[in-house]
Each structure stands twice: as C-alpha cells, then as structure tokens.
Amino acid sequence: MEAMAEHSRETRVTGESVADKIQERLQKRHQARAEDAERKKEAKESQSVAEEKSEYFASTFNAEQASIEELLSSCSGADRTVVTQTLEEATVKTLQLQKFLNDSILFLTQYELRRAQDALQKLLASSAEIREEALPKKKFAFRARSKATDKVSAPPVIDTPAGTGSTKVVGAPAESLQCCFSNMDNVCLIKTAEDIHKQDVLLTHLNNCKVRLFGSPSTLHMTHINNCEILCGPVSSSVFVDQCSNSTLAIPCQQLRTHNTTDTQVYLHVTSRAIVEDCHGVHFAPFTWSYPTLDEDFIVSGLDRDRNNWSQVDDFNWLAAGTPSPNWNVIPEAERKTNWEL
C-alpha cells in the first residue's frame, strides 16, 4: 500500500512536470516554426530577383528595343563603313535582347512573350532590309571565265620551248652519227645508202630544194622546209615533219608525225599510223617512188611492205569521231604524182 501511495505521488509530481515540459516544447516548436517560416520567406525573397518582374522586363525590353531602332534609323544615308559598323552593333544588341527574352520566358505571360517576340522579329527584319539596301550583296552568277582563256594561258608553257630551244643540239660526242642538211636554197641534194644507213637524218631550213635520200635511215627529222621535194628510202622508226610548207614528201616509215605543216603532199607508206597536229592542207597518197635498191632498204628497215596505213591519219586537233578532219585529205587518184624524175 505504502508503495502504491508513493507511486501515485510520484506520478502526480511527474504529471505536473510533464505538463510544464509539453508547454515548453510547444513553445519551442512554435518558435522554430516561426523562424523556419521567416527563413523560408527570406530565402524566397533572396531568390526572387527584382528583374523577375514583368514590369521590369517590359521597361528594359522597350528601352533596348528603342535603342536598336535608333541605331538602325541612323543608318539611312550614312557612309558605307559607318553603316557596316552600326549594323554590326545593332545585330549584337538584338542578339542580346533575344537572350534576355529567352531568360525571362519563365515568368512572362503568354501575351507578353508573344509581344516581345514580334518586336524582335520586326527589329531583325528592318536590320536585314537596311543591310540589303546599303550593302547589296553580289548577286550569284557563274563567272565568265571561259574555257578559251584557260586554254590560252596553258599553251605558252608548252609552246616556248618548241620555238626557242628546239634548234639546240645537245651532246656533241655522237654528232657524227647524225647526217644533216641545213640552210640551203635552190640546190639538189643526194645521199647514198652508205651515208645514211641506220642514222638519224636531219633536214632544216631548206628552200626550193630537191632532196633524194637513197637508203634506210633510223629516223628522219624535217623542220622549216619550204617549197621542196623530199624523197627518202624506208625509215625504220619515225619521221618528224615540223614547219613545212608547199612541199612534196615521199617516205616509207613506221610512224609519221606531222606538226605545223601547211599545203604539203605526202606520198606515204606507214606501217602504224600517221598523225597531224596543228596542220592545215596536208594531202596524202600512197608511196609510189621507187629506186633500184628500194627492196633491200625495205628489208634493212624492217618495215612490212604489205602493211600500209597511209590513209588512216589521226588529227590531234580534231577529236570528233565520225566527222573527217578538215586539216587533211586524200589526193584524188587522177591528181597523184607519178613521175619522180629529177
């Protein structure tokens, strides 16, 4: 019993103190809540910047817009460089304004947003208009750089060496191997088989000459020939004709390469092909000249007597297949030369 009484007293005592404590705790909690609310309010206030207000936005935006418009209007009638500069500045400002609008989207109403976007659009349009007016862009067009000018610029590199350097003969040691006629007028030139056998024969700067080469040279070069009659035995490789005019040639060879030649008749036996380049009025007929040792010379040259492509001429300046080149033709049979007497 005693123990019970004591217990109840004790409970009473504690009961009182518990009530006190609760009171106190409630108080504390209330205070904390108040403080918390205060803190939150403060935090909220610190977060919400002054700019986050539509009035602030509107005023700033309008001011900026006005300044850009002013910049743009100052462009009319100004100097080209000034206009360029001002436009540059206006563009930068417009871009900044656009960014400002983008940053403010969160707190703007739909209406404000649309109005601002319209204003920006207008600014961009008018700046583009001014740019177009003051600094017209070059209209795009293909430039008139024709192929013709291209071609004109290319050849000189190639042409010059032919004109200047081609007469230079390099390498003296083997000179004796070359048989040469040059700078002659109105003469009759004859070479026999021993003179030209397997040699390179060179004929240059001949005028009104008659040339007979009996025998089989290795190659034959003819340059600057005018009004001549040149007959030659079988040439085992190529014949070069360059700068030849008003002449008659008769040659068997493996290849004939004709350049810069005009009004010349060629009585030809060619086992591969003849070509013309930069020529005009070159006339071809089959080779008909004959002399006593021709057969032997054919054997020496190694040319095939049964293969003659004299009428198959490639014109390097006439690449149109199907249409014949106007630069060469075949001599009609009736007009061919048959008498080769000196």
Binding site: V157, I158, T160, P161, A162, G165, S166, T167, K168, V169, V170, G171, Q178, D200, L202, S218, T219, H221
Partner: peptide, 13 residues
C-alpha cells in the same frame, strides 16, 4: 635518248 633536238623541251616539261 636519240632525240637531241628536243632534249631542252624534255627538260622543261
């Protein structure tokens, strides 16, 4: 190698 006349052309090209 036998075309002495045009060795200069050849060099330039």
């Amino acid at each position: 190698s036998a075309d002495r006349l045009r060795l200069e052309d050849c060099r330039k090209e």
